[in-house]
Every structure is written in structure tokens, then in C-alpha cells.
């Protein structure tokens, strides 16, 4: 379990965006995205302003575009849906590049694509400039219920441990000639997942006992101290 505890998306840096308090970044992200989502579909000038604003923040954060761009593929399935929209929607027809498409569908598809892309880039900017621990502290300052913050803290802390455990199980399965992706191997895969659940659950019990023996009373002291 020698894996680093840094997050996969975090990009180390010292820009003003990196240094900004996490709770402000969270509020800014939520506020900004609400405005983007509330922008009417055909206000293209507003989209341009929002996109420029976001690109300005990205530039300020000095996270390279080559780092962000490959991580934006996460939105591809919805981009496909957005591209299909002009063909699926009803309403008056119009012609684009020799194809007859629905006009409201075209606007909606474009709006979907723009809003989705801005959303993914804005979330990536938060994730790449903020350490997971900072996000937790930000949520705590925003009065997120303490229990949620604690659960999230445990999840972040044990993410690498549990995924590495799963990775070792997969390596063990593959080295015995089992392809976990094939539906024929689902029974084997399911047993591995059952074992992973039991291991995770028992790890939770051990962690809880270890915490009790160190005086846990329902609150985590470390997050306040840091």
C-alpha cells in the first residue's frame, strides 16, 4: 500500500487559484455553474463571456491545457447525446450542411454541449487545484453535516487502499487466466467483489476499534487542528 495519497486529479501548484480558500472555490463553482445552467439556450454572447471567465481562471491556475484536455473525455457520452439532439427533437426544420434538422433541437444540442463542457472544465479546475483534504475542510466551513464530512474523509483516505486491493485481486485473477471483463467470468468476479466487501467492512470495524482506543467520541479532532 505504498501508493501516494495525493489525488489523481490534483495538479500541484502555487497559483492564486491553488491558494484560494477551498470554501470560497466551492461556493464560486456552485454559483458560477448555476448562472451557466440558468442562461437561456440561445444567449450565445453570454456563453462566450462565461467561457472566457472560466478560461481566465484556468490560465490563472497555470494548470496546463495538456493536463486538463485528456481528462475532459468524461463528458463524451453526453456530447454524443447533444449531437443527436437536432435529429431527435421536433419543431420547425432547418437546413445545416445539407442535413434537415430540428431548429429548437439544434439550439438545445448546442446549449447542452456548451453547458456540459463549461461544467466539466469548471469541476476539473476545482479538482486539479484543490487537495482533497482542503475540499473536506471547505465543506466543513460551509456547514456540511459533520457525519457526511467524516464519511467523505474516510472514503478519500481509504480510496487508494481499497482500489489497490481490488487491483491486486484483478492481477491475481488475470494471472490465473481469467478475464474479468467477460460476462462468462462474472461468477468469479462477483466472488472477488464479495471478498472485497467483506475485507472493506472488516477494515471499517478495525478502524473503528482503533479510533475508539484513541478516544474517538463522534468527532474527528484532526480536521479542526489542521
Amino acid at each position: 500500500m505504498g501508493a501516494g495519497h495525493g489525488h489523481r486529479l490534483h495538479f500541484h501548484g502555487h497559483s492564486p487559484v491553488h491558494r484560494a480558500p477551498a470554501h470560497l472555490k466551492l461556493v464560486a463553482l456552485l454559483g458560477f455553474m448555476l448562472v451557466v445552467v440558468a442562461t437561456p439556450s440561445d444567449w450565445y454572447a453570454a456563453y462566450a463571456v462565461e467561457a472566457l471567465l472560466l478560461l481566465g481562471v484556468v490560465a490563472l491556475s497555470r494548470v496546463p491545457v495538456t493536463y486538463l484536455a485528456p481528462r475532459m473525455v468524461i463528458e463524451v457520452p453526453f456530447a454524443v447525446f447533444a449531437l443527436l439532439m437536432p435529429f431527435l427533437a421536433h419543431g420547425p426544420r432547418t437546413e445545416v450542411l445539407g442535413l434537415t434538422v430540428s431548429e429548437p433541437g439544434l439550439h438545445a444540442g448546442l446549449a447542452l454541449l456548451v453547458k456540459g463542457t463549461i461544467g466539466v472544465l469548471a469541476s476539473l479546475t476545482l479538482a486539479s487545484t484543490t487537495e482533497p483534504q482542503e475540499v473536506l475542510r471547505g465543506l466543513q466551513r460551509l456547514r456540511m453535516p459533520d457525519l457526511i464530512v467524516q464519511i467523505m474523509g474516510f472514503m478519500i483516505r481509504y480510496l487508494d487502499v481499497v482500489t489497490a486491493e481490488l487491483g491486486r485481486m484483478m492481477v491475481a485473477m488475470r494471472s490465473r487466466g481469467c478475464d474479468p471483463r467477460s460476462p462468462r467470468q462474472w461468477p468469479t468476479l462477483a466472488r472477488a467483489m464479495g471478498a472485497l466487501f467483506i475485507r472493506s467492512y472488516e477494515r471499517g470495524e478495525r478502524v473503528h476499534l482503533a479510533m475508539l482506543s484513541r478516544g474517538y467520541d463522534g468527532r474527528l479532532p484532526a480536521q479542526d487542528a489542521a
Binding site: 467524516q150 474516510f154 472514503m155 481509504y158 468476479l189 472485497l196 466487501f197 477494515r203
Partner: peptide, 21 residues
């Protein structure tokens, strides 16, 4: 009072299980 660590670990398990495509 086991909620925080147990739910945290089970959430991690769910996340790991979702990683298998």
C-alpha cells in the same frame, strides 16, 4: 457510532465496484 468509519469504507467499496467496467 460506527457510522463514520463503516459508511466510509462501504462507500469506498461501492466506488471500487463501480470501477469495473
Amino acid at each position: 457510532d460506527r457510522t463514520a468509519p463503516m459508511a466510509g469504507l462501504v462507500a469506498t467499496f461501492v466506488f471500487a465496484a463501480q470501477m469495473i467496467n
